[in-house]
Amino acid sequence: MRLSAIGDCCHAAALVHRIKTHWPDAQLTWIIGKVEYQLMKTLPDVRFIVFDKKQGKAATRQLQAAVKDEYFDALLMMQVALRANLASRVIKAKERIGFDWARSKELHWLFANKRVKPHGHAHVLDGFMDFGDALGVPPLMPPQWHIPVPDASEEKAKALLERVGPYAVISPAASKDERNWLPERYAQVAEHIRSKNKAVILCGGPGSMDKTLAEAILSHTDKITENLVGKTSLHDMLAILRYASLVVAPDTGPAHMATTVGTPVIGLYAHSNPRRTGPYNSLSYVASVYDQCIEEQKGKSWEKLPWGARAKGKTLMSRISTHSVVALVDQLLD
Rank of each mutant, 00 (worst) to 15 (best):
M1W: 11
L3K: 03
I6M: 11
G7Y: 05
L15M: 13
H17M: 13
R18Q: 15
H22A: 04
W23Q: 12
W23H: 14
A26M: 08
A26S: 12
I32G: 01
G33V: 08
E36V: 13
E36D: 15
Y37D: 06
Y37P: 02
Q38M: 09
L39G: 00
L43V: 06
P44D: 15
F48W: 13
G56T: 09
A58H: 12
L63S: 00
D73Q: 12
Q79K: 05
A84P: 01
A93L: 07
K94T: 14
D100A: 05
W101A: 15
R103E: 02
E106W: 02
H108K: 04
V116A: 06
A122E: 03
H123C: 08
L125N: 00
A134R: 12
A134D: 08
G136A: 10
M141F: 15
P150L: 07
D151L: 13
K156R: 13
K156P: 03
A157P: 02
A157D: 03
A159N: 14
R163C: 07
Y167G: 09
P172N: 05
P172Y: 01
A173R: 04
A174D: 04
D177N: 14
R185S: 06
V189I: 12
E191Y: 07
N197Y: 07
N197V: 03
V200H: 00
D210G: 01
I217K: 01
T221Y: 00
T221A: 09
D222R: 15
I224L: 08
T225S: 08
E226T: 08
E226D: 12
K231A: 12
S233N: 09
L234Q: 07
D236R: 05
D236P: 04
I240K: 02
I240L: 05
A244K: 02
A244S: 14
A249E: 05
G253R: 00
M257C: 08
V261N: 05
V261F: 08
V261I: 03
A270E: 02
H271C: 03
S272K: 05
R276E: 10
S284T: 14
D291G: 10
Q292K: 14
W302N: 07
L305G: 01
A311E: 02
L316Q: 05
S321F: 12
V326E: 01
V329H: 06
